[in-house]
């Protein structure tokens, strides 16, 4: 007996389909379903429990009228710009230094990268201690005789978000350096030889030849940094718990607090939907450039 008829398409490759069930469930139920659910319930006045009692955009009006949310957004923007600019600049400079065929490259790389292995909680706690006004950097400098020295970022509401950025940069720059270093190593050695034959100074070669060639690396890095910025939460919790007052609040913390402490689910959903929106603003143009552009070629 030979199978002469085309078998049922559903049962062809059955094992592969079975193996993909977790992926399908996660993609449909958790990612797509969960996101749609949250967006839908952000239009309700759910308090302690989710209820389908639609109130239109009320939650969003309230959100944008809440000082704590506005501060959160402002903090996120400052934190975002600071960590983006500094981690790119420092990360690239460190990578460029390591790319000079130096000795002990592995040792230096290991040192620059180890903070990335630590959690944000650990990072936050350590820096909270280092920046402790009585015993930390400020205390030490003052005890050396400079009594008017003032460096107390975590307890000064106007600069607290910068204080948090210090810890974030310490933790994350190593990663950026690694990505940049990989990008630099990916560049053809002959480019350097050609630039040297042409007598172009090194900094100009970096600025006008190497960096433009590393455009894809920069874009990927940018997306990685940006999607990490939006999620910032643990670091703030560990370092300042949002304080002093509400001076270092961030959106992710706003969401968590409204969902699980203030028992105001609707606010939490609206705030998380705003976070989703901000990520989309970053991701969609990138995805379009990265994947949409190729089809036209």
């Amino acid at each position: 007996m030979s199978k002469s008829a085309r078998p049922n398409q559903l049962f062809r490759n059955l094992n592969a389909k079975v193996a993909s069930i977790p992926m399908v469930l996660t993609a449909l139920v958790v990612f797509a379903g969960g996101t749609a659910w949250t967006v839908l319930y952000s239009f309700t006045n759910s308090k302690l429990l989710p209820r389908l009692n639609f109130v239109g955009l009320d939650q969003y009006y309230r959100l944008w009228a809440t000082p704590r949310w506005l501060i959160s957004i402002e903090n996120l923007l400052i934190y975002g710009v600071v960590s983006l600019v500094f981690s790119l600049v420092i990360g690239f400079l460190l990578a460029a230094l390591l790319d000079q065929k130096i000795r002990f490259e592995d040792t230096f790389r290991t040192i620059f990268l180890y903070p990335f292995a630590l959690s944000f909680i650990v990072t936050g706690v350590v820096w909270q201690w280092l920046l402790n006004p009585d015993f930390g950097v400020q205390g030490v400098v003052r005890s050396l005789g400079w009594t008017s020295f003032d460096f107390n970022p975590l307890y000064n509401s106007s600069i607290v978000i910068y204080g948090i950025s210090i810890a974030a940069l310490w933790q994350g720059t190593g990663l950026i350096m690694c990505l940049m270093l990989a990008g630099l190593r990916g560049i053809d050695e002959d480019i350097w030889k050609a630039a040297r034959v042409d007598g172009i100074p090194m900094w100009k070669t970096y600025l006008f030849i190497i960096i433009p060639m590393m455009r894809p690396v920069f874009i990927t890095t940018l997306v990685i940094i940006a999607s990490g910025i939006v999620k910032v939460y643990d670091l703030v919790v560990a370092q300042t718990s949002g304080g002093p007052g509400i001076a270092s609040e961030v959106p992710a913390k706003y969401v968590y607090d409204y969902m699980f402490f203030a028992q105001n689910l609707g606010q939490g959903f609206a705030a998380s939907t705003m976070m989703l929106l901000s990520v989309m603003i970053v991701i969609v143009p990138w995805a379009y450039l990265e994947f949409g552009g190729r089809k036209r070629v």
Partner: peptide, 18 residues
């Protein structure tokens, strides 16, 4: 590779979907 149309015989046996 799964074919779109047609048949394949090997040693007189239809193996198109084997």
């Amino acid at each position: 590779l799964d074919i779109s149309e047609g048949r394949i015989f090997i040693k007189g046996k239809n193996v198109t979907w084997e």
